[in-house]
Design a protein around this nucleic acid. Sequence first.
DNA 1: AGGTATTCACATGAAACTATTCTCTGAGTTAGG
DNA 2: TAACTCAGAGAATAGTTTCATGTGAATACCTGT
Length: 400
Amino acid sequence: MGITNFFENFLKQDSLFQDKSVLLSSYVPEEVLYRESQIQEVANILAPALRMDKPSNLFIYGKTGTGKTLSVKHVLQSMVNLAATNNIPLKAMYINCKLKRVADTEYRLIAQIIKELGQEIPPTGLPTDEVYNIFYKLLDQQKQLILLVLDEIDQLTKKMGDDILYNLTRINSELKNAQLCLIGISNNLIFVENLDPRVKSSLSEEELIFPPYNALQIQDILKKRSEKAFSPDVIQAGVIEKCSAYSARDHGDARRAIDLLRIAGELAERSGSKIIEMSHLDEAEKKVETDTIINAVTNQPKQFQSVLYAVLLLSPQKKNFFTGEIYETYKSLCQKTKFNILTQRRVSDILAELDMLGVINAKIISKGRYGRTREISLSLEESLVLKLKEILEKSLLLSQ
DNA sequence: AGGTATTCACATGAAACTATTCTCTGAGTTAGG
DNA sequence: TAACTCAGAGAATAGTTTCATGTGAATACCTGT
Protein backbone atom coordinates (compact mmCIF):
# COMPACT_ATOMS: atom_id res chain seq x y z
CA MET A 1 0.00 0.00 0.00
CA GLY A 2 1.54 3.30 -1.08
CA ILE A 3 2.09 6.02 1.44
CA THR A 4 -0.02 8.45 -0.58
CA ASN A 5 -2.79 5.96 -0.50
CA PHE A 6 -2.50 5.78 3.23
CA PHE A 7 -2.81 9.51 3.63
CA GLU A 8 -5.77 9.63 1.27
CA ASN A 9 -7.54 7.06 3.35
CA PHE A 10 -6.60 8.94 6.44
CA LEU A 11 -8.24 12.07 5.12
CA LYS A 12 -11.32 10.34 3.78
CA GLN A 13 -12.03 8.45 6.91
CA ASP A 14 -13.94 10.78 9.15
CA SER A 15 -12.39 11.04 12.54
CA LEU A 16 -13.89 9.57 15.65
CA PHE A 17 -12.94 12.78 17.34
CA GLN A 18 -14.71 16.04 17.02
CA ASP A 19 -12.55 17.99 19.39
CA LYS A 20 -9.82 16.07 21.06
CA SER A 21 -8.69 18.99 23.20
CA VAL A 22 -11.71 18.43 25.43
CA LEU A 23 -10.04 15.26 26.65
CA LEU A 24 -6.68 16.84 27.40
CA SER A 25 -5.81 17.71 30.95
CA SER A 26 -5.34 21.36 30.03
CA TYR A 27 -9.02 21.70 29.22
CA VAL A 28 -11.13 23.71 31.63
CA PRO A 29 -14.84 23.06 31.11
CA GLU A 30 -17.24 25.90 31.77
CA GLU A 31 -19.11 23.73 34.19
CA VAL A 32 -17.43 21.49 36.71
CA LEU A 33 -19.59 18.56 37.70
CA TYR A 34 -20.01 17.41 41.29
CA ARG A 35 -17.71 20.02 42.72
CA GLU A 36 -20.31 22.73 43.28
CA SER A 37 -19.87 22.92 47.02
CA GLN A 38 -16.10 22.96 46.82
CA ILE A 39 -16.15 25.65 44.17
CA GLN A 40 -18.50 27.69 46.28
CA GLU A 41 -16.16 27.34 49.24
CA VAL A 42 -13.15 28.42 47.25
CA ALA A 43 -15.12 31.34 45.91
CA ASN A 44 -16.22 32.36 49.40
CA ILE A 45 -12.70 32.33 50.66
CA LEU A 46 -11.22 34.19 47.73
CA ALA A 47 -14.02 36.68 47.17
CA PRO A 48 -12.50 39.45 49.33
CA ALA A 49 -9.81 39.74 46.70
CA LEU A 50 -12.28 41.51 44.46
CA ARG A 51 -12.53 44.27 47.03
CA MET A 52 -8.73 44.31 47.29
CA ASP A 53 -8.74 42.74 50.71
CA LYS A 54 -6.23 39.97 50.98
CA PRO A 55 -8.09 36.70 51.34
CA SER A 56 -6.90 34.06 53.76
CA ASN A 57 -4.28 31.74 52.39
CA LEU A 58 -5.90 28.56 51.25
CA PHE A 59 -4.70 25.04 51.31
CA ILE A 60 -6.42 22.37 49.31
CA TYR A 61 -5.80 18.71 49.34
CA GLY A 62 -7.27 15.59 47.88
CA LYS A 63 -6.12 12.64 45.81
CA THR A 64 -5.10 12.98 42.19
CA GLY A 65 -7.89 13.52 39.73
CA THR A 66 -10.39 14.85 42.22
CA GLY A 67 -10.79 18.15 40.45
CA LYS A 68 -8.67 20.34 42.71
CA THR A 69 -6.76 22.10 39.99
CA LEU A 70 -9.78 22.30 37.78
CA SER A 71 -11.97 23.89 40.43
CA VAL A 72 -9.38 26.44 41.43
CA LYS A 73 -8.68 27.37 37.85
CA HIS A 74 -12.37 27.69 37.26
CA VAL A 75 -12.87 30.09 40.16
CA LEU A 76 -9.79 32.10 39.31
CA GLN A 77 -10.81 32.45 35.72
CA SER A 78 -14.13 34.02 36.55
CA MET A 79 -12.56 36.24 39.18
CA VAL A 80 -9.96 37.49 36.76
CA ASN A 81 -12.57 38.12 34.13
CA LEU A 82 -14.65 40.10 36.56
CA ALA A 83 -11.62 42.00 37.76
CA ALA A 84 -10.67 42.88 34.21
CA THR A 85 -14.07 44.34 33.34
CA ASN A 86 -14.22 46.31 36.59
CA ASN A 87 -10.64 47.49 36.46
CA ILE A 88 -9.57 45.78 39.62
CA PRO A 89 -5.82 45.18 39.77
CA LEU A 90 -6.14 41.52 40.51
CA LYS A 91 -3.83 38.94 39.05
CA ALA A 92 -3.92 35.17 39.24
CA MET A 93 -0.94 32.97 38.71
CA TYR A 94 -0.87 29.25 38.40
CA ILE A 95 2.36 27.37 38.89
CA ASN A 96 2.88 23.67 38.94
CA CYS A 97 5.75 22.91 41.26
CA LYS A 98 6.27 19.45 39.89
CA LEU A 99 7.45 20.45 36.45
CA LYS A 100 11.07 19.43 36.19
CA ARG A 101 13.41 22.25 35.36
CA VAL A 102 10.63 24.81 35.54
CA ALA A 103 9.52 25.33 39.10
CA ASP A 104 10.83 22.53 41.22
CA THR A 105 13.33 24.49 43.31
CA GLU A 106 13.23 27.71 45.24
CA TYR A 107 15.23 29.60 42.67
CA ARG A 108 13.24 28.32 39.74
CA LEU A 109 9.91 28.87 41.42
CA ILE A 110 10.65 32.54 42.01
CA ALA A 111 12.17 32.82 38.55
CA GLN A 112 9.01 31.35 37.09
CA ILE A 113 6.82 33.80 38.98
CA ILE A 114 8.96 36.66 37.76
CA LYS A 115 8.55 35.37 34.25
CA GLU A 116 4.78 35.37 34.67
CA LEU A 117 5.09 38.97 35.79
CA GLY A 118 6.79 39.71 32.51
CA GLN A 119 10.50 39.66 33.14
CA GLU A 120 13.12 37.12 32.20
CA ILE A 121 15.57 35.77 34.71
CA PRO A 122 18.65 33.73 33.81
CA PRO A 123 18.32 30.05 34.67
CA THR A 124 21.36 30.09 36.95
CA GLY A 125 24.23 32.25 38.10
CA LEU A 126 22.30 34.68 40.26
CA PRO A 127 22.24 34.50 44.04
CA THR A 128 18.83 33.58 45.35
CA ASP A 129 18.41 36.74 47.41
CA GLU A 130 19.05 38.74 44.29
CA VAL A 131 16.18 36.93 42.63
CA TYR A 132 14.02 37.64 45.64
CA ASN A 133 14.87 41.31 45.41
CA ILE A 134 13.83 41.47 41.79
CA PHE A 135 10.68 39.66 42.74
CA TYR A 136 9.82 42.10 45.54
CA LYS A 137 10.46 45.11 43.39
CA LEU A 138 8.43 43.75 40.56
CA LEU A 139 5.52 42.91 42.81
CA ASP A 140 5.58 46.12 44.72
CA GLN A 141 5.89 48.54 41.85
CA GLN A 142 2.13 48.85 41.63
CA LYS A 143 -0.85 48.37 43.85
CA GLN A 144 -2.17 44.96 43.11
CA LEU A 145 -3.36 41.75 44.61
CA ILE A 146 -1.93 38.50 43.41
CA LEU A 147 -3.45 35.09 43.81
CA LEU A 148 -0.65 32.60 43.57
CA VAL A 149 -1.61 28.99 43.06
CA LEU A 150 1.10 26.49 43.84
CA ASP A 151 0.03 23.13 42.53
CA GLU A 152 1.67 20.07 44.04
CA ILE A 153 3.60 22.02 46.67
CA ASP A 154 4.59 18.82 48.35
CA GLN A 155 7.09 18.29 45.54
CA LEU A 156 8.68 21.59 46.38
CA THR A 157 9.23 20.89 50.06
CA LYS A 158 10.24 17.31 49.50
CA LYS A 159 13.65 18.13 48.10
CA MET A 160 14.31 21.47 49.69
CA GLY A 161 13.12 22.34 53.16
CA ASP A 162 10.11 24.46 53.90
CA ASP A 163 12.14 27.67 53.91
CA ILE A 164 10.67 28.55 50.56
CA LEU A 165 7.16 28.48 51.88
CA TYR A 166 8.23 30.36 54.95
CA ASN A 167 9.68 33.09 52.79
CA LEU A 168 6.58 33.24 50.68
CA THR A 169 4.24 33.43 53.62
CA ARG A 170 6.05 36.34 55.15
CA ILE A 171 6.46 38.25 51.95
CA ASN A 172 3.37 40.31 52.65
CA SER A 173 4.97 42.09 55.55
CA GLU A 174 7.69 43.33 53.21
CA LEU A 175 5.37 44.63 50.57
CA LYS A 176 3.97 48.14 50.65
CA ASN A 177 1.63 48.22 47.68
CA ALA A 178 1.03 44.70 46.55
CA GLN A 179 -0.45 41.78 48.40
CA LEU A 180 0.08 38.12 47.85
CA CYS A 181 -2.39 35.38 48.59
CA LEU A 182 -1.19 31.80 48.50
CA ILE A 183 -3.27 28.91 47.37
CA GLY A 184 -1.53 25.62 47.89
CA ILE A 185 -2.63 22.39 46.30
CA SER A 186 -1.35 19.01 47.33
CA ASN A 187 -2.39 15.42 46.93
CA ASN A 188 -0.35 14.31 49.85
CA LEU A 189 -2.61 14.38 52.86
CA ILE A 190 0.09 14.22 55.51
CA PHE A 191 2.17 16.88 53.82
CA VAL A 192 1.00 19.70 56.08
CA GLU A 193 1.74 17.78 59.22
CA ASN A 194 5.50 17.71 58.64
CA LEU A 195 5.63 21.41 57.99
CA ASP A 196 7.20 23.98 60.24
CA PRO A 197 4.34 25.06 62.54
CA ARG A 198 4.72 28.70 61.55
CA VAL A 199 4.42 27.85 57.89
CA LYS A 200 1.61 25.48 58.59
CA SER A 201 -0.56 27.96 60.42
CA SER A 202 0.11 30.63 57.86
CA LEU A 203 -0.35 28.53 54.78
CA SER A 204 -3.49 26.79 55.84
CA GLU A 205 -5.49 29.61 57.27
CA GLU A 206 -8.26 27.90 55.39
CA GLU A 207 -8.32 24.27 54.45
CA LEU A 208 -10.38 22.38 51.97
CA ILE A 209 -10.57 18.69 51.26
CA PHE A 210 -11.64 17.29 47.93
CA PRO A 211 -13.20 13.84 48.20
CA PRO A 212 -12.78 11.36 45.37
CA TYR A 213 -15.48 10.92 42.77
CA ASN A 214 -17.51 7.75 42.82
CA ALA A 215 -18.09 5.61 39.77
CA LEU A 216 -21.38 7.22 38.83
CA GLN A 217 -19.96 10.69 39.02
CA ILE A 218 -17.02 9.74 36.84
CA GLN A 219 -19.48 8.25 34.43
CA ASP A 220 -21.35 11.51 34.14
CA ILE A 221 -18.15 13.44 33.71
CA LEU A 222 -17.01 11.11 30.97
CA LYS A 223 -20.36 11.29 29.22
CA LYS A 224 -20.35 15.02 29.25
CA ARG A 225 -16.85 15.31 27.93
CA SER A 226 -17.28 12.66 25.32
CA GLU A 227 -20.33 14.41 23.89
CA LYS A 228 -18.06 17.24 22.89
CA ALA A 229 -14.96 15.26 22.16
CA PHE A 230 -16.29 12.49 19.97
CA SER A 231 -18.49 12.35 16.93
CA PRO A 232 -21.97 11.05 17.79
CA ASP A 233 -22.44 7.33 18.33
CA VAL A 234 -18.87 6.19 18.11
CA ILE A 235 -18.64 4.73 21.58
CA GLN A 236 -19.86 1.23 22.07
CA ALA A 237 -22.40 0.84 24.85
CA GLY A 238 -20.77 0.02 28.15
CA VAL A 239 -17.37 1.44 27.37
CA ILE A 240 -17.87 4.56 29.42
CA GLU A 241 -19.28 2.53 32.27
CA LYS A 242 -16.31 0.23 32.26
CA CYS A 243 -13.88 3.09 31.96
CA SER A 244 -15.31 4.82 34.99
CA ALA A 245 -15.40 1.59 36.93
CA TYR A 246 -11.70 1.12 36.29
CA SER A 247 -10.83 4.49 37.72
CA ALA A 248 -13.28 4.46 40.59
CA ARG A 249 -11.76 1.22 41.69
CA ASP A 250 -8.47 2.67 42.91
CA HIS A 251 -9.40 6.12 44.09
CA GLY A 252 -11.82 7.94 41.86
CA ASP A 253 -9.26 9.52 39.60
CA ALA A 254 -11.23 11.34 36.94
CA ARG A 255 -8.19 12.50 35.04
CA ARG A 256 -7.05 8.96 34.55
CA ALA A 257 -10.48 8.00 33.31
CA ILE A 258 -10.45 10.80 30.77
CA ASP A 259 -6.96 9.91 29.61
CA LEU A 260 -8.00 6.33 29.24
CA LEU A 261 -10.97 7.23 27.12
CA ARG A 262 -8.92 9.47 24.89
CA ILE A 263 -6.27 6.85 24.33
CA ALA A 264 -8.89 4.23 23.65
CA GLY A 265 -10.24 6.59 21.03
CA GLU A 266 -6.84 7.09 19.50
CA LEU A 267 -6.21 3.38 19.39
CA ALA A 268 -9.56 2.74 17.80
CA GLU A 269 -8.94 5.37 15.21
CA ARG A 270 -5.51 4.06 14.42
CA SER A 271 -6.81 0.57 13.94
CA GLY A 272 -9.39 1.91 11.52
CA SER A 273 -12.36 0.98 13.63
CA LYS A 274 -15.56 2.96 13.28
CA ILE A 275 -16.40 2.68 16.94
CA ILE A 276 -14.59 2.50 20.21
CA GLU A 277 -14.95 -0.96 21.66
CA MET A 278 -14.17 -2.60 24.94
CA SER A 279 -11.05 -4.11 23.50
CA HIS A 280 -9.69 -0.68 22.74
CA LEU A 281 -10.25 0.30 26.32
CA ASP A 282 -8.36 -2.71 27.60
CA GLU A 283 -5.58 -1.98 25.18
CA ALA A 284 -5.52 1.62 26.33
CA GLU A 285 -5.16 0.62 29.93
CA LYS A 286 -2.18 -1.51 29.12
CA LYS A 287 -0.66 1.17 26.94
CA VAL A 288 -0.97 3.81 29.62
CA GLU A 289 0.86 1.65 32.07
CA THR A 290 3.66 0.64 29.74
CA ASP A 291 4.07 4.12 28.37
CA THR A 292 4.44 5.76 31.75
CA ILE A 293 7.03 3.24 32.82
CA ILE A 294 8.99 3.43 29.61
CA ASN A 295 8.88 7.18 29.76
CA ALA A 296 10.03 7.29 33.33
CA VAL A 297 12.88 4.91 32.65
CA THR A 298 14.21 6.55 29.51
CA ASN A 299 14.37 9.93 31.22
CA GLN A 300 16.50 8.57 34.01
CA PRO A 301 20.30 8.93 34.14
CA LYS A 302 22.57 6.19 32.89
CA GLN A 303 23.58 4.90 36.29
CA PHE A 304 19.95 4.53 37.22
CA GLN A 305 19.38 2.56 34.06
CA SER A 306 22.36 0.38 34.82
CA VAL A 307 20.88 -0.59 38.15
CA LEU A 308 17.57 -1.37 36.51
CA TYR A 309 19.36 -3.45 33.92
CA ALA A 310 21.06 -5.39 36.68
CA VAL A 311 17.65 -6.10 38.15
CA LEU A 312 16.38 -7.27 34.79
CA LEU A 313 19.38 -9.55 34.40
CA LEU A 314 18.75 -11.10 37.75
CA SER A 315 15.02 -11.52 37.49
CA PRO A 316 14.77 -14.60 35.26
CA GLN A 317 16.89 -16.58 37.70
CA LYS A 318 14.79 -16.21 40.78
CA LYS A 319 11.61 -14.61 41.89
CA ASN A 320 12.94 -12.65 44.83
CA PHE A 321 16.34 -11.19 45.47
CA PHE A 322 18.09 -8.79 47.81
CA THR A 323 19.93 -5.52 47.59
CA GLY A 324 23.31 -7.16 47.98
CA GLU A 325 22.77 -9.50 45.04
CA ILE A 326 21.71 -6.64 42.82
CA TYR A 327 24.72 -4.64 43.86
CA GLU A 328 27.00 -7.50 42.89
CA THR A 329 25.50 -7.93 39.43
CA TYR A 330 25.48 -4.21 39.04
CA LYS A 331 29.17 -4.08 39.83
CA SER A 332 30.10 -6.71 37.29
CA LEU A 333 27.87 -4.97 34.78
CA CYS A 334 29.78 -1.74 35.33
CA GLN A 335 33.01 -3.55 34.76
CA LYS A 336 31.77 -4.62 31.36
CA THR A 337 30.42 -1.25 30.39
CA LYS A 338 33.37 0.58 31.87
CA PHE A 339 31.15 2.83 33.96
CA ASN A 340 32.44 3.78 37.34
CA ILE A 341 30.80 1.97 40.17
CA LEU A 342 28.45 3.75 42.50
CA THR A 343 28.40 3.12 46.21
CA GLN A 344 25.90 0.75 47.67
CA ARG A 345 24.37 3.70 49.45
CA ARG A 346 23.43 5.25 46.16
CA VAL A 347 22.23 2.00 44.63
CA SER A 348 20.00 1.57 47.63
CA ASP A 349 18.41 4.93 46.90
CA ILE A 350 17.99 4.06 43.25
CA LEU A 351 16.22 0.86 44.23
CA ALA A 352 13.90 2.91 46.40
CA GLU A 353 13.16 5.12 43.42
CA LEU A 354 12.48 2.13 41.22
CA ASP A 355 10.03 0.99 43.83
CA MET A 356 8.29 4.35 43.72
CA LEU A 357 8.03 4.16 39.97
CA GLY A 358 6.34 0.79 40.33
CA VAL A 359 8.95 -1.02 38.29
CA ILE A 360 9.90 -3.26 41.14
CA ASN A 361 8.24 -4.39 44.34
CA ALA A 362 10.49 -3.83 47.29
CA LYS A 363 9.71 -4.77 50.83
CA ILE A 364 12.08 -4.27 53.71
CA ILE A 365 12.46 -7.52 55.57
CA SER A 366 14.65 -8.71 58.35
CA LYS A 367 16.43 -11.99 57.93
CA GLY A 368 17.26 -12.06 61.59
CA ARG A 369 20.84 -12.96 62.18
CA TYR A 370 21.45 -12.49 58.48
CA GLY A 371 20.60 -8.83 58.40
CA ARG A 372 18.00 -6.52 57.06
CA THR A 373 17.48 -5.76 53.42
CA ARG A 374 14.99 -5.14 50.69
CA GLU A 375 13.27 -8.13 49.29
CA ILE A 376 12.80 -7.26 45.68
CA SER A 377 10.73 -8.72 42.91
CA LEU A 378 10.06 -7.44 39.44
CA SER A 379 6.49 -6.37 38.90
CA LEU A 380 6.29 -6.16 35.15
CA GLU A 381 4.89 -8.26 32.39
CA GLU A 382 7.18 -10.36 30.28
CA SER A 383 6.67 -8.27 27.15
CA LEU A 384 7.45 -5.05 28.94
CA VAL A 385 10.55 -6.56 30.47
CA LEU A 386 11.82 -7.46 27.03
CA LYS A 387 11.04 -4.02 25.70
CA LEU A 388 12.81 -2.39 28.60
CA LYS A 389 15.83 -4.60 28.16
CA GLU A 390 16.05 -3.56 24.57
CA ILE A 391 15.76 0.11 25.41
CA LEU A 392 18.36 -0.09 28.12
CA GLU A 393 20.79 -2.00 25.97
CA LYS A 394 20.56 0.71 23.39
CA SER A 395 20.90 3.46 25.92
CA LEU A 396 23.81 1.89 27.72
CA LEU A 397 25.48 0.94 24.47
CA LEU A 398 25.49 -2.69 25.41
CA SER A 399 25.63 -5.08 22.56
CA GLN A 400 25.71 -8.89 22.37
C1' DA B 1 12.89 -24.47 78.32
C1' DG B 2 12.76 -19.68 78.45
C1' DG B 3 14.79 -15.27 78.38
C1' DT B 4 18.44 -11.90 76.80
C1' DA B 5 21.96 -10.18 74.19
C1' DT B 6 24.31 -10.21 69.68
C1' DT B 7 24.79 -9.51 65.21
C1' DC B 8 24.18 -9.28 60.41
C1' DA B 9 23.27 -6.61 56.14
C1' DC B 10 21.59 -3.51 55.03
C1' DA B 11 18.25 1.01 55.59
C1' DT B 12 18.03 5.79 56.38
C1' DG B 13 19.85 10.57 57.28
C1' DA B 14 22.77 14.47 56.92
C1' DA B 15 26.38 16.87 55.13
C1' DA B 16 29.76 17.62 52.04
C1' DC B 17 31.75 17.18 47.52
C1' DT B 18 32.01 17.40 42.10
C1' DA B 19 31.04 18.72 37.58
C1' DT B 20 28.40 21.56 34.78
C1' DT B 21 26.20 25.57 33.43
C1' DC B 22 25.44 30.08 33.96
C1' DT B 23 26.12 35.31 35.55
C1' DC B 24 28.65 39.28 36.88
C1' DT B 25 32.81 41.96 37.53
C1' DG B 26 36.68 44.15 36.49
C1' DA B 27 41.29 44.18 34.37
C1' DG B 28 43.38 44.42 30.11
C1' DT B 29 43.01 45.35 25.11
C1' DT B 30 41.57 47.65 21.10
C1' DA B 31 40.03 51.30 18.04
C1' DG B 32 38.67 55.69 17.12
C1' DG B 33 39.13 60.63 18.22
C1' DT C 1 38.48 57.56 26.29
C1' DA C 2 34.78 54.48 25.21
C1' DA C 3 33.80 49.91 23.75
C1' DC C 4 35.07 45.18 23.76
C1' DT C 5 37.05 40.77 25.39
C1' DC C 6 37.89 37.44 28.38
C1' DA C 7 39.45 35.23 32.65
C1' DG C 8 38.06 34.47 37.29
C1' DA C 9 34.85 34.48 41.21
C1' DG C 10 30.58 33.02 42.66
C1' DA C 11 25.76 30.61 42.15
C1' DA C 12 22.38 26.88 41.37
C1' DT C 13 21.70 22.15 40.50
C1' DA C 14 21.98 17.05 39.83
C1' DG C 15 24.21 13.28 41.14
C1' DT C 16 26.95 11.43 44.05
C1' DT C 17 30.24 10.15 48.25
C1' DT C 18 31.35 10.07 53.18
C1' DC C 19 30.26 9.54 57.66
C1' DA C 20 26.99 8.28 61.10
C1' DT C 21 23.29 6.14 63.08
C1' DG C 22 19.23 2.96 63.08
C1' DT C 23 16.91 -1.56 63.03
C1' DG C 24 14.07 -6.40 63.20
C1' DA C 25 14.43 -10.80 64.22
C1' DA C 26 17.16 -15.36 63.74
C1' DT C 27 20.65 -17.10 66.41
C1' DA C 28 24.16 -17.52 70.22
C1' DC C 29 24.52 -17.45 74.91
C1' DC C 30 22.96 -17.63 79.46
C1' DT C 31 20.12 -18.96 83.47
C1' DG C 32 17.85 -21.51 86.69
C1' DT C 33 15.08 -25.76 86.92
